[in-house]
Design a protein around this nucleic acid. Structure first.
Lengths: 153, 153
DNA sequence: GTATCTGCAAACCCTTTGCAATAAG
DNA sequence: CTTATTGCAAAGGGTTTGCAGATAC
């Protein structure tokens, strides 16, 4: 158990998940997960690979690519957006969920959360008979700076 | 003007957009836009290319790839999701906006809309001083059939 | 007339995959 | 021991791009 509270750590969750599927817990998988959960930043495969190498650890990119679908299935990470030809992810276990407000022009991102989304989920659950796992709300707009630029041109 | 109401058609909007940028209205662009707006379905570049060819018309994929960023900038289409290595789009002009409820397992999609999202947008507009253009709410869950499957295994 | 656009094919680059060696359970 | 996993390098496949010819305006 995690010392901070009674929730199991992401590693425990994932070990359990692997065991259920007859899969194996390896040092490589541990390295990757620890790196993912060491920050709350978005990541893509390349940036993850680089930050692992910078710590002097070694894992192949193939192993990262092969691990990601498992982490998604275990509900530990999710895809957040696709940009510049790469998928970006973030971990969703152990810290508050948030949504993204993005500037269409300069790509800057603000994070926010709103209780109304949970209400919408409850309604959907009833209406469609789905088991809701999570959501992704992305609001797209123009930040104040980019509004000025497009007015002046 | 569109005969159905007083809103300009998507072609008029786009011509205007091109003119503002010193760009040209070509038969190829017209073909692509007409095809996109001929249905309310999601599309990807490949399916769009195929349906254009099936009508006996000819446009290169490169022209489609080059047109898409322009249509996004003109707020006529948007990215809806990335799947199987391809981006999927849908047009957002001229028909009711909707959100997506997706099954994580079988990938089926239900569409819905909810007024609360508009309220969230208003709050964000004030709070972050963004000009809000649109949103993308994707709720991920397990449909009733896939819930049964995962319980029985 | 001039700058933009088109089609083609090659280049790009992220991601996936086959394979032989390794290691978890 | 058996079967899953790893790293490597090659293959895959959607998207982008350079270029020469065509064409909006």
């Amino acid at each position: 158990m995690d010392a901070r509270n009674n929730k199991p750590s992401e590693l425990e969750i994932f070990r359990e998940f692997l065991k259920r599927q007859g899969m194996r817990y390896t040092p490589e998988r541990e390295t990757i997960i620890k790196e993912i959960f060491s920050t709350h930043e978005h990541f893509d495969v390349d940036s993850l690979y680089i930050s692992i190498r910078q710590k002097g650890l070694r894992v192949s990119k193939a192993s990262i690519y092969r691990l990601i679908p498992l982490l998604i299935k275990a509900n530990l990470i999710e895809e957040v957006f696709f940009e510049n030809g790469q998928m970006h992810y973030e971990h969703i276990y152990g810290h508050e969920h948030h949504c993204h407000l993005r500037c269409q022009e300069c790509k800057r991102i603000e994070e926010f959360s709103d209780k109304r989304v949970a209400q919408i989920e409850e309604d959907l659950q009833r209406r469609f008979n789905y088991k809701i796992l999570r959501h992704k709300l992305e609001v797209i707009g123009l930040c104040s700076e980019c509004q000025k630029k497009s007015n002046s041109s």
